[in-house]
């Protein structure tokens, strides 16, 4: 088949455009809703924690600061929704995605392992106080944000890098500079940031 230079140039442009669209769809479709789910989960978790910061759980003689009760509900729901969305809405299925899923589980196992290993030297009484719970939550947040940074560096969209760094910075700032407003601050910056990332991802794949 004879082909002119103009045809060839057009074909190469088509290839580039189709490839770009496919990559965008692969990166963002499904991820958009997952970010939104976690954005809402964080928003609810932090807002409830702010307004129930004087809440105390009592078990006989034992009492502990219990402002974080809402997390026990919103996190399992968000995890279940993430698994369902990931399975039903992703445009692309790849071995890399499965590896990322394993990476996330391993990351939390790693975190839990260190908590177990260090348990003899952790002052759990301190963790049951209002300040201890705040520090614990801020520490937990650093784990998924580190994962975002790693994923952003390794081809999962540069926006993940900035999202991870941005929420990490907001987290540290809130904890150290405005501890009394930490929960509301993180509801806006963390929950809002994740939800905004979802909107960005949605627009990115819809442009595809």
């Amino acid at each position: 088949m004879e082909s002119t230079q103009r045809d060839a140039s057009q074909a190469l442009q088509d290839i580039e455009q189709a490839g770009e669209k496919a990559k965008r769809m692969s990166l963002y479709k499904g991820a958009d809703l997952i970010y939104m789910v976690w954005g809402v989960a964080w928003l609810i978790g932090f807002v409830v924690q702010h307004f129930s910061r004087d809440f105390t759980l009592r078990f006989g003689d034992f009492s502990m600061h219990g402002s974080g009760w809402a997390w026990n509900i919103v996190v399992p729901i968000a995890i279940i929704l993430t698994l369902i969305i990931g399975r039903r809405r992703s445009a692309v299925q790849s071995a890399v995605d499965k590896s990322i899923g394993v990476f996330w589980w391993l990351l939390f196992v790693y975190f839990a392992l260190w908590v177990t290993v260090l348990s003899p030297v952790i002052d759990f009484q301190q963790l049951y106080t209002a300040e201890g719970q705040r520090v614990l939550l801020a520490g937990i947040i650093l784990v998924p944000m580190f994962a975002y940074v790693v994923m952003g560096l390794f081809g999962y969209g540069r926006y993940m890098l900035w999202l991870g760094l941005g929420i990490t910075a907001a987290n540290v700032f809130g904890l150290l500079v405005i501890p009394n407003w930490y929960y509301l601050w993180m509801a806006v910056m963390g929950g809002g940031g994740l939800f905004a990332a979802g909107i960005f991802a949605r627009q990115a794949w819809r442009r595809a």
């Binding site: 088509d14 490839g19 770009e20 496919a22 692309v92 071995a95």
Partner: peptide
């Protein structure tokens, strides 16, 4: 067919595209 191939080749090796999304 050119765009089908371009879209599929752009993905990581071993990846598959959902028919509806393609």
């Amino acid at each position: 067919r050119l765009r089908i191939m371009a879209a599929l080749v752009a993905l990581d090796p071993g990846s598959t595209f959902n028919f509806v999304d393609l």
